[in-house]
């Protein structure tokens, strides 16, 4: 059981690492949104799954309720993350920010 928890946590940490590196390396802010919005969401999903499994070690009704509450966080993040991403993209669009393309780099 502990191995499963460790596996989930390391997977989540790896996703977070990918998100952080992507945020640093991407050329413009539209493409920075891709790792920021999505890899973090999946990282939260993996890590909360691992923690919820660890929480169910000493099985009781309270522990079950607590794990349900943790998955409420995941549900909320899955619902709110596209909305937040969309609102940032919309703000950039209305400000007239152009996106990075390959041709621009050559010229």
């Amino acid at each position: 059981m502990d191995i499963l928890v460790i596996l989930f946590l390391v997977t989540g940490l790896f996703f977070f690492l990918g998100g952080a590196v992507g945020i640093i390396r991407m050329p413009d802010f539209y493409s920075r949104l891709h790792p920021a919005g999505k890899l973090d969401t999946l990282g939260i999903f993996a890590m909360v799954t691992g923690l919820a499994i660890y929480n169910l070690h000493h099985f009781s009704f309270d522990a079950l309720l607590l794990s349900a509450k943790m998955f409420l966080i995941v549900f909320f993040v899955f619902l709110s993350s596209p909305t937040a991403t969309h609102s940032i993209v919309d703000a950039g669009m209305r400000a007239g920010l152009r996106h990075w393309t390959k041709k621009k780099r050559k010229g």
Binding site: G18, G22, D28, L39, H99
Partner: peptide
């Protein structure tokens, strides 16, 4: 698709792989 994006983020020559467009 997340694994695809992960591969893109860690690729050393990322700026040649990606091609953002609308």
């Amino acid at each position: 698709a997340n694994f695809h994006l992960l591969y893109l983020a860690f690729h050393p020559r990322m700026k040649e792989l990606i091609d953002p467009h609308i």
